[in-house]
Lab assay of single mutants.
Amino acid sequence: KKYKIKVYVKDKKTKKWKKIKEIEVDTKEEALEAIKKLPPNYEVKIVP
């Protein structure tokens, strides 16, 4: 079972969220580790 991490950042001009990358991992633990490495201003969604 794979997890997709969708990473969004808020556009300063439009104030809208835009997706900047998608990370695919195998476990939820890996997903949480990957999220920890991202800057705090990123919004993250984990999709099972």
Rank of each mutant, 00 (worst) to 15 (best):
Y42A: 11
K15Q: 12
T14F: 04
E22Y: 03
K18S: 05
E30S: 05
K36M: 11
E30F: 03
K45V: 15
K28R: 14
Y42R: 10
E22F: 03
A34V: 15
K21C: 14
K15A: 08
V9H: 06
P40I: 09
W17Y: 09
K4A: 05
E33Q: 13
I5W: 03
I20Q: 03
A31S: 03
P48M: 14
K15W: 02
V44D: 01
K19F: 14
E24D: 11
D26Q: 09
K37L: 12
V9Q: 08
L38H: 02
K4P: 00
I35T: 04
I23Q: 03
Y3M: 06
V9F: 08
N41V: 10
I23R: 02
W17M: 05
Y42S: 07
E43R: 15
K36C: 10
Y3C: 05
P48T: 14
I23D: 02
D11Y: 06
V47E: 11
W17N: 01
Y42H: 08
K19D: 01
E30P: 00
K21E: 11
D26K: 08
K12Y: 10
P39S: 12
K1W: 10
K21F: 14
V25L: 05
A34Q: 11
K16R: 11
K45T: 12
K19Y: 10
K45H: 13
K1L: 12
I35W: 04
N41R: 14
D26A: 10
K12M: 09
W17E: 00
K37V: 08
K6N: 10
K45Y: 13
V47C: 10
P39D: 10
Y8G: 00
E43D: 09
E22V: 09
K28V: 14
K16V: 05
I23L: 09
K6A: 10
A31V: 14
P40T: 07
K36I: 07
D11E: 05
E22S: 04
Y3R: 01
Y3F: 14
N41I: 11
D11H: 09
K37R: 13
N41E: 14
K2I: 06
E29G: 06
I35D: 00
I46L: 09
I20C: 05
E24Y: 15
K45N: 06
K13S: 07
V25H: 03
E30I: 05
A34R: 10
V9A: 10
V7H: 00
I23C: 09
K10P: 03
E29F: 09
K1N: 09
V47M: 11
K13N: 08
K16I: 05
K13P: 03
A34L: 15
K36W: 04
A34G: 02
A31E: 02
V44N: 02
T27Y: 03
K12A: 11
T14V: 03
P48K: 14
A31T: 04
I35Q: 04
Y3E: 00
E24S: 12
V44E: 01
K18R: 13
T14C: 04
T14H: 05
Y42T: 08
K18N: 05
V25Y: 12
E43T: 15
A34F: 15
K1E: 09
L32E: 10
T27E: 02
V44Y: 14
K36Q: 10
E43C: 15
K18H: 09
E29Y: 07
P40N: 11
Y8F: 07
V7N: 00
K18F: 10
I35P: 00
A31C: 10
L38D: 00
K19Q: 11
N41S: 14
L32Y: 14
E33T: 11
E24V: 13
V7Q: 00
I23F: 14
E29M: 11
V47D: 05
E30N: 04
K18C: 06
L38N: 01
K28P: 11
L38V: 05
T14L: 05
K18L: 10
I5N: 00
K16D: 03
E29Q: 12
D11R: 05
K28Y: 15
E29I: 09
K12N: 11
K19G: 02
N41A: 09
E24K: 05
V25C: 11
T27A: 02
E22M: 04
E30K: 07
K12D: 08
K19N: 03
K6S: 13
T14Y: 04
L38K: 02
Y3H: 02
Y8P: 00
E30G: 05
V47H: 08
K16A: 06
K21W: 13
L32A: 09
E29T: 07
K6H: 14
K6R: 09
D11L: 06
E30W: 02
V7C: 08
V9D: 04
Y3K: 00
K45P: 01
K10Y: 15
W17L: 05
K21S: 11
E24L: 13
K6V: 15
Y8N: 00
E22G: 01
K13W: 09
K13Y: 11
K18T: 10
K19W: 08
K16S: 04
K1M: 14
I23K: 02
L32K: 07
V44Q: 02
E22P: 00
V7W: 04
K1H: 14
K28E: 08
I46R: 02
V9T: 07
K15H: 13
V44R: 02
V47P: 02
V7E: 00
